[in-house]
Amino acid sequence: MTKPLEVKQEVPVVTRTTSNSYSLKESATVKWSLITISFLYISLFLILPLISIFVTAFEKGWETYVASIVHPDALAAIKLTITVALIVVPLNAIFGIVAAWLITKFSFKGKNLLITLIDLPFAVSPVIAGLIFILLFGAQGLFGEWLFEHDIKIVFALPGIILATLFVTFPFIARELIPLMQTQGVTEEEASISLGASGLKTFLYVTLPNIKWGLLYGLILCNARAIGEFGAVSVVSGHIRGLTNTMPLHIEILYNEYQFTAAFAVASIMSVLAIITIIIKNIVSWKAKDV
């Protein structure tokens, strides 16, 4: 890069002044102070809590850890959580795709209102999200009597948990897809339809490949929230051990009974899931950038 220097009279040789002053960049002191503060902040609020979960979980050794997890109540909670996620995520995914198609491929009155309504659950406290299903299906609720007469249980049972989780995670996938499909426009779909493809074929062969990373991104976020939802589920579950306790609720019970090690053991599993979520999310956004 640097060629042999010929010495010319009077010409001072300046070696590499990438930025000759601090009017364009911060001084090294400012830079490293900001980095240090950010690092400390992240450590204090994010890294340390994460580490503490694993340390506390293994405090009493491997055996206690395993025992806490294979406890029937814990296994039931894990099973319930997986069931809920397996039902909720696909339902919201279908809705997200349909709503995004509607909003980005057609123009109609009230579109902005519709987008706002889809976002609504984000502005509602999870506790209120639980409350509304109690008001609808609880013993004193709108359909309470009818449900009781027909011996159908929604609240304090699996359907209630699913409904509350559906509500809380409602916007995730639609919200990820709408801006993405908006920027992609309609030309490719129009081309496909004009070449004779059906709507479904057009979606499968033209739209889906374009949105797959955004969809995956939304699925991951939706899944993480569905697994971890606490407030809403807590209201509608009824806390019946081994039956209507999801993992987060199980953690709460253990914690309130001062079974800290067991609580943190279950928490550590959820933390591992969270870390996997982050890793996949990063890979996905990295892939999405490449495309």
Binding site: P49, L50, S52, I53, L221, A224, R225, I227, G228, E229, F230, G231, M247, P248, L249, I251, E252, Y255, A263, F264, A267, M270, S271, L273, A274, I275, T277, I278, K281
Partner: peptide, 11 residues
């Protein structure tokens, strides 16, 4: 975003 709130809470 990824960590369940209850887990964050107890930690």
């Amino acid at each position: 975003f990824a960590l369940p709130t209850a887990v964050a809470g107890i930690a």
